[in-house]
């Protein structure tokens, strides 16, 4: 029972983290129609910035805020210098250009921080376990991730659906020329959206950093997961990304936790212990294949233009 609750929360936490990454990706895709493979690199940069700034300042909160700002700035610079010229081009061009950026960022990190990974130590007040139920303890930091991610999700919803900027963003997604003709600076708007996406990716990276090590290529596997999520959820739909992210996070975490035992009851224990890791890694891809076969546009397709 204890294990089930813990794994359930782990799944939720991982799912919310994936949502932060997927939200930026789906915003950029839904609004600018831009496929950004380098989103995983921004995730990685967020983690590296955080590890560096926390070490320099000696304060976790200040370091993290600085890192967030740095990723935002990096995203804006990237969009301004290169990526904005690719809007409206073929998706294949996007894939190729951002693939080049991945190569660049991986080697840039290796040059600056060295090939060895970094660690981001947590302050003492985040390492204490908290009793969420009588007798059930859960690490405070993982709880903090859940709270922060939920808050960000709510904020994102409010900004996009309830503010003037959000209205302009939605209008820009449905008709770029029209909103430009009405006198809105659409280029600036797009730059802001890209920066927001970058900051969300950076936030996901720096929150994951204390749990895993900060290393080169950390953004690549999780980027593929984020893509799976936005494809399952329907490209361009934030609501779809949210639900799909939770779903994928749960399946991945619970699959890893319980599949080996489940298989052991059916197969011999050696066969189970070799098959289980591969099978649990495959689960979400199977899920995605199934969703696409049944609903080729994803579960919650964004409204057609």
């Amino acid at each position: 029972m204890l294990l089930v609750v813990e794994q359930f929360l782990n799944g939720l936490q991982f799912g919310l983290l994936l949502f932060l990454l997927a939200a930026g990706l789906t915003l950029v895709f839904g609004i600018m129609d831009f496929v950004n493979l380098a989103h995983g690199s921004l995730y990685m940069m967020g983690a590296y910035f955080a590890a560096t700034f926390v070490m320099w300042t000696g304060n976790f909160i200040i370091g993290v805020l600085l890192a967030l700002g740095a990723t935002l700035l990096l995203g804006i610079v990237l969009e301004f210098a290169a990526l904005r010229h690719l809007y409206g081009r073929d998706h294949l061009d996007h894939v190729l250009a951002t693939f080049g950026l991945i190569l660049f960022f991986n080697d840039a990190v290796r040059l600056i921080w060295g090939p060895a990974g970094l660690t981001l130590p947590l302050p003492a007040w985040l390492t204490v376990p908290i009793a969420i139920m009588p007798g059930v303890y859960y690490p405070a930091y993982r709880l903090a991730i859940i709270v922060v991610a939920l808050a960000v999700a709510l904020m994102l919803y409010l900004v996009v659906m309830r503010t003037r900027v959000g209205m302009l963003i939605r209008a820009g997604a449905s008709n770029r020329e029209m909103i430009g003709a009405l006198g809105v600076n659409i280029k600036l708007l797009y730059t802001l959206v890209f920066g927001l996406g970058a900051a969300l990716a950076g936030l996901a990276g720096l929150m994951q950093a204390p749990i895993l090590t900060v290393q080169i290529g950390m953004g690549e596997n999780i980027l593929i997961l984020a893509f799976v999520i936005i494809v399952i959820g329907g490209i361009g739909s934030i609501r779809g990304a949210f639900l799909a992210a939770i779903f994928v996070g749960m399946i991945d975490t619970l699959g890893r936790a319980f599949l080996p035992d489940l298989l052991r009851q059916m197969l011999s224990s050696t066969a189970a212990s070799t098959a289980a890791p591969a099978l649990s890694s495959m689960l979400i891809y199977l899920l995605m294949a199934m969703v696409l076969v049944v609903r080729p546009e994803g579960l919650f397709p964004a409204s057609r233009r």
């Binding site: 290169a82 690719l86 061009d93 190729l96 250009a97 693939f99 080049g100 950026l101 991945i102 190569l103 660049f104 960022f105 991986n106 080697d107 840039a108 290796r110 040059l111």
Partner: peptide, 14 residues
């Protein structure tokens, strides 16, 4: 650090 050159080169080609 060959990818440091290769990456931007790809971007330029695109």
């Amino acid at each position: 650090y060959w990818a440091l050159i290769m990456g931007p080169l790809l971007l330029l080609i695109v």
